[in-house]
Write a protein that binds this DNA or RNA. Sequence first.
DNA 1: TGTATTTTAGTTGTCGACAAAAATTCCGCG
DNA 2: CGCGGAATTTTTGTCGACAACTAAAATACA
Lengths: 238, 238
Amino acid sequence: MAKRSDTPAEETQPERKRGSGAQHVYEVLRRDILNLTLPPGSLIDEVQLSERLNMSRTPIREALVRLASEGLVSTLPNRSTVVSNIDFLNLHTFFDALTLMYRVTTRLAAENHTEADMAKIRACQAAFSHAVDTQDAQEMISTNRDFHAAIAEAGRNPYFTGLFCRLLDEGRRLLRLYYLSFDDRLPHRYVVEHDEMIAAIEARDVALCDRLGRTHADQIVAQIQQMIARDRRHDIPL
Amino acid sequence: MAKRSDTPAEETQPERKRGSGAQHVYEVLRRDILNLTLPPGSLIDEVQLSERLNMSRTPIREALVRLASEGLVSTLPNRSTVVSNIDFLNLHTFFDALTLMYRVTTRLAAENHTEADMAKIRACQAAFSHAVDTQDAQEMISTNRDFHAAIAEAGRNPYFTGLFCRLLDEGRRLLRLYYLSFDDRLPHRYVVEHDEMIAAIEARDVALCDRLGRTHADQIVAQIQQMIARDRRHDIPL
DNA sequence: TGTATTTTAGTTGTCGACAAAAATTCCGCG
DNA sequence: CGCGGAATTTTTGTCGACAACTAAAATACA
């Protein structure tokens, strides 16, 4: 495959703290994967990465193992590791899990949130609203994820939070696929729904949170399905 | 021709297949952690392990990274990694997640199971029933986990299956803590409930599966809480 | 004797190198 | 010109070694 000259330059100084090597490459790779800078199916070359980040292959391998156990990359034995591609055939399982987690985390947030949690959630919502105002699609996707992650954190259940964040990241890649140069008026609806969620959480109205979580999930699922359906037309061979 | 490997005992000969080093130590450590052979808080010494398993530190580190990202061990920076201890203060979050996953996976199994799934589930239930008959506590814990994991597999949602298996493993450690030399007549009740679950799944009765999953979870949660409460008495200082 | 500081031992994180396996190229033969 | 197999190249999995860092032991000092 042809090398791309616009690889993200991460030339760090040789001055690095001792334990942070693997952590650093983990964060870099994770960010690039979620931003689709490394599109699904990309081959990850260890020595190329080690040269680019000025470190040995050992910390890179450690980061790859971590990413593999989170499902972000797949490593074939004795073969190169590739960025996991999105399983369009089983998207419904993703939607099922996402919907349930939207509901559960919002409910739990209503029950367990503190004032500090609400402050964080409001800050995330402000960032999301700003991204919508400025029509920044990438920022919208990222801040939307942070908003719901903050709600999950307020729910105080690390098991749900862990699964939900994983799902949100997967959704981040999905949305990024279709949001590359496209936007519509739907995001305003999300801003409104987010505000409703905040109010319901603060009022500790569990039933309302459940309903809002479900409808919000339905919105996003419907949007993604619509995008896929619209995109399907290009797949017809002539 | 590929070389034939003997029984994967503790002391493996230098004859090992190339890619299987890290996998092997991962499985060994995982088994020992879940069996409480390595009790929570145990320090894991890399060089000691490398000597015991006749391999370098590199594959051992890879296995430790994987275990850490699954939460089975915690690795302090520049310090030794220890087996994660059970968070008794936040057990309720564990119970919440476990209950929800019991319900969801059983429901999905009712909707999506095939005949092959039912065969596997029945085989697991037979193994569990046999363990109950022979009063083998360790085998009961292990086969009970496999039974519910098989139901989750039949539900065909890898996100739920992943979280559920993680919870079941955590529960395996919890039960093992209290089942060391103790058993009562409760397991028979589990056999009956398992049979009811199988019937409900096969009948594709989603509502009944939901109810059975919830009550089954309640049983287990109540049992664990009772064990903890009984154990608490010893904690009173005089 | 108790406390602060230095020394020492031990463990982890990183490195470069080497061997095995796969991918690729090269070459002979039909 | 195409194809099968051997040789080469590339990439991964593993190894031993070393530096950085932590914890404990030993020493100095009030």
